[in-house]
Amino acid sequence: MAKTHVITEVNGEEAEFLCEPGQTLLETLRDELNLTGTKEGCGTGDCGACSVMLDGRLVCSCLVLSPEVDGRKLETIEGVADGEKLHPIQQKFLEHAALQCGVCTPGFVVATKALLEKNPDPTEEETRYWLAGNLCRCTGYDKIIRAVLDAAAELRGEA
């Protein structure tokens, strides 16, 4: 089977891979690029565990075909921290105990980063609606929302 050659940028570095044309970006990230921080919860765009940034837009990587990202820019959970230094969103998720099992956490962190880059001072309601596509079954969302609002305050320099 002829594979497609794709050159893209992942977390600021050029990445090159071969894929089957019908293969999703999620499969490619996990299986070809070994970036397993992006999780599959449903494969149909309903849970947000596979959230990544594609050319600056938040998307479900399960609903992107791998060849589509040729020449595009991707950001995944692996690119959120600055080397060893956690991003303030990651730090606040830890401080607020905003994760239990942790499998939805990468998706929430990526989605939160997208939110705060666009809206540095979201209300609770805006935060809840922005994150409505990220399912969490453990926390009841309470501590996640608190972590996001606190991270927003910190990034604004208020905390």
Binding site: G45, G48, R57, V59, L63, W130, A132, G133
Partner: peptide, 9 residues
């Protein structure tokens, strides 16, 4: 239409 993620596409 859909979630934030869906709206990106």
């Amino acid at each position: 239409i859909g979630s934030t993620q869906i709206q990106g596409r």
